[in-house]
Design a protein around this nucleic acid. Structure first.
Lengths: 246, 246
DNA sequence: AGTCACGCTGTGGTCTAACCACACTGTAAG
DNA sequence: CTTACAGTGTGGTTAGACCACAGCGTGACT
């Protein structure tokens, strides 16, 4: 006797069937960024599965940064295809850091690796560098009190991401962003270890300007060196602990 | 009047509440790799949410490579905590490649970057190098017919992963694996473009041995150069399109 | 006493049907 | 012409039911 269910997916779970269908629609270009998935109830009927299974698939895609679900009606509503690889990689890394199977030190090391490469690779005339310069000015405008550290760090993230974008590799940019996101809470807490946040912030700013200048002068090797020293210096000063010592 | 629901999550969707709870359990060490989550029904009751919401959260964690769900009873059953960052990053990258917002050329470039670094960083006495050597012997044993290309490539993946592991950075290893996984189907199809698979395979093997020898002689710089040439050479021969030409 | 069969139990997997909040849309009242 | 409001379609959530699966215990039979 076969399965008493009408639908048999060959051992594949139902939501995976939905996932595969959506992924094929993406590959075939039937679904593109900005496009909208059929409504959950419609899709369920089309594929002959329950709405529950459709929803599980959509949840996964949402976690992967591939779709965004919005209630109501209008342009913001429905399940629309986006492309936010950073979100996906970021939460994945964060979760695995939580399981303590991805040491923070390894993340920092990888960040240095990717970011040095990006600095060396960035084109001197990349438009992202203008944005980076603007961000530096904004960071100067932020107060130097430890209360403003979070605000400074938020701008700092955007500055470093702008540099990564200037290298023109979407994968490296996404990975950079995700690394940064995965240890964001960690980095925030580190400021408490600093003896004088104001002094550190000023030093970081000076280094930022050196890095930007090196890139604009097309001295990629120097930019890479400076970036590596910049990142490693910060974590050393703030005292990264290896998780094994907890 | 507030919400007529008893439970109010502050705008947070219910499954995110569950996710946050599980993540905090992981961070606090209450849940560790190998441990098991409470049964779905139990967890639902404990957190005061429906089983559906619990399941949506678990689906996400499963997609992230943080848990594995198994039916039945016994040691293989239940939802157990694992740690497979590669799976998460891999499917995320694959999906975004499907949306055509992550050019394959960028993935290859990133792979070269990470893999050169790993080759330069690998310790000459790393135990993973022994496994790598064994894999090379197995690859020699594989026939050179184009039918065996998939088998050869499967071993090739493991060889490159072994090299990455020898560098001792879990994040880089995971990213490497995920990059390779995300374009696995792509790489397989590329073999059809090659004029003579047997000749290419033999050349790849020669390069593999050169790389391994360089690492064992602690000549990291040379190993990095060889790895970069090895990867770029293969994709050039098989004909990857540069994204800028699209 | 030993062995085998079978039902019990607890697990995740799936489905149905209902209700909610939300945001736009059209229409009717002013 | 403007405004108020019911209608409609979206995702969000829940309760309850049933399924297949795998191990475990108990009973019957040898």
């Amino acid at each position: 006797m076969w399965s008493n269910h009408i639908n048999y997916h060959g051992g594949m779970r139902t939501h995976q069937l939905v996932l595969r269908w959506i992924e094929s629609q993406l590959s075939d270009g039937e679904l593109t960024v900005g496009g909208r998935l059929p409504a959950e109830r419609t899709l369920a009927e089309q594929l002959g599965v329950s709405r529950t299974s459709v929803r599980e698939a959509i949840r996964i895609l949402e976690a992967m940064g591939v779709v965004r679900a919005g209630v109501g009606s209008g342009p913001e509503a429905g399940t629309v295809v986006i492309s936010d690889p950073t979100a996906a990689l970021g939460s994945a890394l964060r979760l695995h850091v939580a399981t303590q199977h991805l040491p923070v030190a390894d993340i920092v090391e990888t960040r240095v690796l990717l970011e040095s490469w990006a600095a060396a690779r960035a084109r001197a005339d990349a438009p992202e560098l203008e944005e980076a310069a603007t961000l530096l000015d904004e960071m100067d405008a932020v107060g130097r009190g430890s209360q403003q550290a979070d605000r400074f760090l938020a701008l700092d993230v955007r500055f470093h991401l702008a540099l990564a974008d200037a290298a023109g590799n979407a994968v490296v940019s996404a990975m950079m962003g995700s690394l940064r996101e995965s240890i964001q809470g960690y980095a925030g807490k580190l400021t408490a270890n600093l003896p004088d946040w104001g002094a550190t912030a000023s030093r970081l700013q000076a280094e930022h300007r050196d890095i930007l200048a090196a890139i604009k002068m097309d001295d990629g090797a120097r930019a890479a060196r400076l970036v590596a020293a910049h990142i490693e210096g910060y974590y050393r000063e703030a005292g990264v602990r290896h998780p094994a010592t907890d």
